[in-house]
């Protein structure tokens, strides 16, 4: 891991300074998380007090139940929407992207190259940029404010198919050839040999997709026009840009909204790091 020979290692003073700088940076990076928790568990009076204090005068855990019982904030429903969308999009992308990637990498076909370039060409135009034309299409399908409109257009990310193809090209061919000799077709080789042996890569893509889907904002904002189709991000944004904000409630919402992700992050970080390092994508 440490790729420095002995003579090039930093001095003791250098090490101390490095740890000092890293600790200061770490505190700065953690401060916003602390502020979310602090404000979320404070009273409105504590947050807006002219005397700012690091710790609130008292902790108010009932803010959490208040958030879920406040009829003017559809937070529980928004959380449910976000969860459903993120799960469906992650699963859909894994299935569609891995099938397509496998077909491109392993099944010989005369026009495979042309199809590959058709997919790669879409990498040049990020989905966010074409939200106006996509909205035009989805609204003429009548999918505005519906789960279909929120989930389906995001399933066909060229990058996922591209990454799976690159990954399958590096998958050891001998394993599949043994399976083919045993009488398995392409489907059998994919489903019984390749998928069970690619858990790490699938997990990496899944974590990246889930986080990206949960945090995405522009498309849910464009499509989720009725309150019933708001995601967590859209719900928070609506109250953030409203005239009167109930600050502690917003921060509880933020805390609740990032808890699932921090959990996923803590449990699956090695897959996430691997995925980012290998693919250079963020959902």
């Amino acid at each position: 891991m440490d790729n420095q020979p002995v003579g090039l290692r930093p001095s003791v003073l250098g090490t101390v300074l490095r740890y000092l700088a890293l600790t200061v940076a770490a505190l700065v990076f953690l401060l916003p998380f602390y502020l979310i928790v602090r404000n979320g568990l404070s009273t409105e009076a504590d947050i807006t007090s002219p005397e700012w204090t690091l710790f609130p005068s008292s902790l108010h855990w009932e803010n959490i139940t208040e958030l879920f019982t406040d009829p003017s904030v559809p937070m529980a429903h928004a959380l449910w929407n976000s969860l459903v969308i993120a799960v469906l999009q992650t699963a859909g992308q894994l299935v569609l992207g891995s099938l397509c990637g496998y077909g491109l990498a392993r099944i010989p076909y005369r026009h495979a190259n042309k199809i590959f370039y058709l997919i790669v060409a879409t990498l040049m135009v990020p989905a966010a940029v074409t939200f106006v034309p996509s909205f035009v299409l989805v609204s003429s399908l009548g999918w505005v404010s519906s789960l279909r409109g929120l989930v389906i257009p995001g399933l066909f990310a060229g990058f996922t198919a591209f990454m799976f193809r690159q990954y399958f090209l590096s998958f050891p061919r001998e394993l599949e050839e043994a399976a083919r000799i045993d009488g398995l077709g392409y489907w059998g080789a994919y489903w019984r040999i390749v998928v069970p042996n690619s858990g790490g890569f699938f997990a990496a893509v899944a974590v990246i997709q889930f986080i990206g889907s949960w945090n995405s904002f522009l498309w849910p904002l464009v499509i989720g026009q009725d309150e019933s189709s708001w995601t967590v991000q859209v719900a928070m944004s609506t109250f953030l840009t409203a005239q009167n904000v109930n600050i502690h409630e917003l921060f509880v919402a933020a805390a609740v909204g990032i808890v699932p992700l921090v959990l996923i992050f803590a449990l699956l970080q090695r897959y996430l790091v691997r995925g980012v390092a290998e693919t250079g994508i963020k959902g």
């Binding site: 916003p32 928070m236 944004s237 917003l250």
Partner: peptide, 24 residues
Amino acid sequence: FRSVFFLPTACSYVVAAMVWKLSL
């Protein structure tokens, strides 16, 4: 340290905007 610096990746731009606008 790697985890701490990487952790904000799990955060959405909306949440960050909220902390920056209403607190920081």
